[in-house]
């Protein structure tokens, strides 16, 4: 499975060297509104990335405190998945803004850029947006319900306020919707010249 514009993968080599090795083929032009939207999504995604480091610290702390002091707390264990869950949920739209969700490129990479844009256009309208609409329609009440019922962990000493993590889920879907619309603008910029594509290839910072 290869990626259309960048070598992402569970397996993607990190950092700039890889993007230099494989220059993105047929990158979409930016537009004024999508550039601003993407910038926000990227800031959120990058901020969420630091949660990995916090999680590493938490786990290291949990292991050390268990073996040195014989203590362990359920809340600390639960905090780990709260953080990890929030990080990847918020990372979904960042990854979409950078177009690093995996694609099967066998046929795709042989198509002309304009044909690829039409596929992207149809895909966003008929696959991605309907899916996100359903997800939003279901995840928002799900988060509200957790707030209404005052849901907390089943473990007596576990964390309370489940609505926070469940809201991250709803927020993630909303951000994905925004990211999808932003990408749609970049596609329509190529296909219909609406909104106006930005003249210089504006590089979005990974």
């Amino acid at each position: 499975m290869a990626n259309g514009s960048a070598p992402a993968g569970p397996d993607a080599p990190p950092g700039p060297p890889s993007s230099e090795r494989m220059p993105p083929a047929g990158t979409l032009p930016q537009t004024a509104p999508s550039l601003r939207i993407d910038a926000v999504l990227i800031v959120i995604g990058k901020a969420a990335s630091w949660l990995w480091l916090v999680t590493v610290g938490l786990i290291a702390w949990a292991v050390v405190s268990r073996y040195l002091f014989g203590t362990s707390t359920i809340a600390l264990d639960e905090l780990q998945w709260h953080l990890v869950g929030s990080a990847w949920l918020l990372g979904l739209s960042y990854t979409l803004a950078l177009d690093e969700h995996v694609r099967v490129d066998v046929i795709h990479e042989r198509l002309r850029p304009r044909a690829r844009c039409w596929i992207e256009f149809a895909g966003i309208l008929l696959l991605l947006l309907p899916f996100l609409a359903v997800a939003a329609h279901e995840t928002i009440p799900f988060a509200l319900e957790a707030y209404r019922s005052g849901e907390r962990s089943t473990a007596p000493a576990g964390l309370g306020h489940r609505w926070i993590a469940k809201s991250a889920m709803a927020l993630s879907v909303l951000l994905l919707l925004v990211a999808a619309l932003s990408r749609l603008m970049r596609v329509t910029a190529v296909l219909f010249g609406m909104p106006r594509p930005l003249p210089i290839e504006t590089r979005t910072d990974r």
Partner: peptide, 22 residues
Amino acid sequence: LKIRFAGLGGKVIEKLGASVSV
């Protein structure tokens, strides 16, 4: 004691100093 203990019983041994998960 690190123990998995569901329900109200979990709250009981939690009071006795156990670390309870479900």
